[in-house]
Design a binder for these strands. Structure first.
Lengths: 146, 146
DNA sequence: ACCCATTGCGCAATAC
DNA sequence: AGTATTGCGCAATGGG
């Protein structure tokens, strides 16, 4: 998973791939009559030579279109790949953040429990009317809930 | 961004794509000499007609190999797509979890601040030797920090 | 009608 | 020897 093929010519630009792909496929114009049937259509007087026939593969315009499309395809794929990678990165980012948040929760929880304990202690002291001097042991009615 | 083309035949299975793609490309055997000749070779008896020549495109073996590869390609791409989707889902999952965690943090933080305030109040009361009866206003030295 | 963007597909070169 | 991946071009189709 490292080196790339780049089999056929086109080191980067030009070099029109004369044939289909890179081998022995012979191009055959094969202009089909493709009679559009009775598709007369009153409005668009176009010469009908566009959609109905397979388009001459030697046509300059054809090659041009192909070339453009190839570019577009490459671009699109690059973009897609990029996006995928970004998504992957996003996952890691979120995972990190998650850990951070969980750590924070842990800390806050601990702090809370400490404070609650202290508070309960005082409450008891007040209730028993005792002066807090040393460590108390939380006795009955001890439910902090959640 | 919804419907798929599926231009050439193959509704799902079989239908060997006789030609290149779906149009007028005529396949041309173009059998290069490649005569198996007397490919003797002691150990690897290969007829040398494998790597050096373009391989007969009519060859039964060729078609078989192509078919297999096509399958593999499809499979691989499906897998890849699946993975991408999973990753995307993972992102959403993590985002949700993140929100949950943040909500929890918010709650804990609030709880903490309340307790701290109460605690400070009591501290003041104790210090001033005052009986807590009504709402107190947290005056100076009021910093909960973070 | 025209153009670019996306997508399924098959081919060939590689990677494994 | 065989499958899995990947870059690439083609054609159909989706969207402006």
């Amino acid at each position: 998973m490292s080196k790339i093929a780049q089999q056929n010519s086109s080191p980067g630009i030009s070099v029109i791939h004369t044939q289909a792909h890179a081998s022995g496929l012979q191009q055959v114009p094969q202009l089909v009559p493709a009679g559009p049937g009775g598709g007369g259509k009153a409005v668009p007087p176009s010469k009908q030579s566009k959609k109905s026939s397979p388009m001459d593969r030697n046509s300059d315009e054809y090659r041009q279109r192909r070339e453009r499309n190839n570019m577009a395809v490459k671009k699109s794929r690059l973009k897609s790949k990029q996006k995928a990678q970004d998504t992957l990165q996003r996952v890691n980012q979120l995972k990190e953040e998650n850990e951070r948040l969980e750590a924070k929760i842990k800390l806050l929880t601990k702090e809370l429990s400490v404070l609650k304990d202290l508070f309960l202690e005082h409450a008891h002291n007040l209730a028993d009317n005792v002066q807090p001097t040393s460590t108390e042991n939380t006795t009955a009615s001890d439910n902090a809930g959640q």
